[in-house]
Amino acid sequence: MMTIYLQAHQLLAAIEVELKNASLWNEVSPSIEALASTTPFCIDTMPFTDWLQFIFLAKMTQRVAMQMPLPVNMAIQPMAEEAFKPLTVDTCELLALILSFDKLLKNI
């Protein structure tokens, strides 16, 4: 049986791949100040895609690697859907992966 951590790891890796495929991966890290934002999704300091990459993926990957408790009832997909509306790239697969991650954590 696949553990929650293995499933989470696979989804996080797929989200990273899809961010890169959609050319939404940023090679430049946000500033320390931007990363210190206390606003949900850091919407006041960075694009949502940067939050996904530098905060969500970084923190979740670390939690999964260390098998730390994972948050329950996450709902990132609605925010992602809203944030991706102005984008011209196809984000269907990315949204599907984010929704899968949300669903995975609802089943903990």
Rank of each mutant, 00 (worst) to 15 (best):
I43W: 11
E16H: 05
M60Q: 03
L104N: 01
F54W: 10
F41T: 03
A58N: 06
P47G: 06
V17E: 06
I76M: 12
L35Q: 12
E16L: 02
Q10K: 13
F54C: 00
N26G: 12
P71S: 08
N107C: 10
M60I: 00
V64T: 07
A13D: 03
L11G: 06
V28D: 08
P86W: 00
A22R: 12
P69R: 10
K20W: 05
P69A: 06
P30D: 08
S23F: 11
R63P: 02
T45G: 09
A34S: 15
R63Q: 14
T61N: 08
F101I: 01
V72I: 15
L95A: 10
T3F: 04
E81N: 08
T38I: 10
I98W: 01
A83I: 03
I32N: 11
A34D: 13
A36D: 12
L35N: 09
I4F: 03
Q77Y: 05
L6G: 09
S29T: 15
I4N: 04
L24Y: 00
E18I: 00
C92S: 15
Q62C: 05
A83L: 05
L104V: 02
E18H: 01
I76E: 04
K59G: 08
T38E: 14
L104G: 02
L24I: 01
I108A: 09
V89G: 08
V64I: 06
N107R: 15
E82A: 14
C42F: 05
D102C: 07
S29A: 15
T3C: 07
T45C: 09
D50L: 10
C92E: 15
I15C: 00
A80G: 07
I43T: 13
L35G: 10
L105Q: 00
M79V: 14
E27I: 10
A13T: 05
I108V: 14
